[in-house]
Design a binder for these strands. Structure first.
Lengths: 256, 256
DNA sequence: CCCTTGAATAAGTCAGCTTTTTCGGCCTAG
DNA sequence: CTAGGCCGAAAAAGCTGACTTATTCAAGGG
């Protein structure tokens, strides 16, 4: 298995993973969401509520409530006298945390990881630039301090600690960007970083260059040097992308 | 009124704007979503289902189905014996098309527009770079042709036609990026471009430089010159940002 | 002060009724 | 004969109101 991904945990979603004790709604949503996301039903396929009632052994209301959620994320469309039509993947709300989580747990996880990584490559440099313009003194100095701690953890080969600090570093840059859409991407970032660590796609000791780049991002932000912060982050992103290259190369070019 | 925005229309969402003939679900979702998004209820405020049943004069199931959707976008959390708690804005799924639409229709529309514009500034250059790597011959030549048509429309002062072509141009670049997360942002882009046009934030005749930059993006993509495509798009984004500067300057810095 | 217990609150779910829309059949006109 | 329009039945979602369940909160005891 390539990069079996832990369930993506989103703090922003009420419908958490469905633990054994979750209500019927969460259970059915999880199962049906996963099934649709995993391609169990072809786009255009038509189910109906009674099929699902039988399948999950719950009442119509439970199914209907689930379908409302699935409709709102673009997975299905319901129509009287037709039924529940499965929509093609291009209609999905691919930024929805549940969708992301399901995709990361599906056969398409590599595609999703790649998409997220490309998204990071676009967003994080710009976030760094905005952070340089907007970060307060405390925020900036915290970042510099974080980068220094990452340096220490990296040199000590303390991977777990490095990971935690790395996630926190990126989270703070996104926060400091002051753009709530960027901030909301912090969980995706955490997921990618965690997955990378879990599958040993990072060297035991991070490249000194990477450590240096984190420090440069932080210092550039502190100096309000947006362009330098952006550049350093671009280089970090390129490096991160390359570190995961072995995964991309095991798959075909993303289907268009 | 500054930039009163037309309802944001998302092709990916079943719950469309609630026209007069829409079902109860769509109607209540629209009203309650709008109310929460507009700050009618303070974060932490607790409603309950029976309040909403009375307010909207529908049965509990209709309310419950709406609440499922609102919970999944982070607007609320339901708990037995407590009720329906309103969550703070930082929990919202700000990439959800409905959330975007409601925000664009609220008092925070300027903040949202700015956030989207910053997002574009991050995404579109990278999309152009990816497109340069991935676009097929037909795609690329269509883009070049589109840029040429934009030139003609711009010179002729045909604003409506220019807008349509502009939207199509950006849509195609996002499509050609091959990253489905980028593709999904096309509606946001269309919204910003449309809003800019509607409120005369664009010159009657587009700057020749903008026209030239569109052409350069297209040609760079055709030549598979990712870096040049990216640079030209960065310049386009900067120009677009500046054209809307008058709006940003009428408001305080975005709250963090 | 902390822990336990029980009642009641408010969401979760059920099963049945209602409504809207699609689909198929029939008729007419060209 | 074919195509288009109209009509009605029925299919499947939409909605209702009542019952069930889980959890919170308050009170009491140690």
């Amino acid at each position: 298995m390539i990069l079996g991904v832990e369930p993506y945990s989103s703090g922003g979603t009420t419908a958490q993973h469905a633990p054994a004790e979750a209500g019927l709604h969460a259970r059915v949503l999880e199962h049906l969401g996963t099934a649709i996301c995993g391609g169990e039903f072809a786009p255009g396929a038509v189910l109906n509520i009674d099929d699902l009632v039988d399948r999950y052994e719950v009442s119509r209301s439970v199914v209907r409530e689930v379908l409302r959620v699935l409709a709102s994320i673009g997975f299905i469309e319901t129509r009287r006298r037709v039924g529940v039509t499965i929509r093609p993947a291009h209609d999905w709300n691919v930024f929805d945390p549940q969708v992301i989580r399901w995709r990361l747990a599906s056969d398409s996880r590599i595609t999703q990881l790649r998409s997220i990584t490309e998204l990071r490559t676009a967003i994080e440099p710009h976030a760094a630039l905005l952070a340089a313009n907007r970060a307060g003194h405390d925020e900036a100095s915290d970042l510099v301090g974080l980068a220094a701690k990452m340096w220490a953890a990296g040199k000590a080969g303390d991977e777990e600690r490095f990971l935690r600090l790395d996630i926190e570093f990126h989270r703070r840059v996104l926060l400091a960007s002051g753009n709530e859409m960027f901030v909301r991407l912090q969980d995706l970032v955490a997921e990618v970083l965690t997955g990378r660590h879990k599958h040993h796609l990072m060297p035991h000791h991070p490249h000194e260059q990477a450590l240096q780049l984190h420090a440069e991002v932080a210092q550039a932000i502190q100096r309000h040097d947006g362009e330098r912060a952006r550049e350093a982050m671009v280089q970090l992103m390129e490096q991160a992308f390359d570190e995961m290259k072995s995964i991309w190369e095991q798959t075909a070019e993303p289907a268009r």
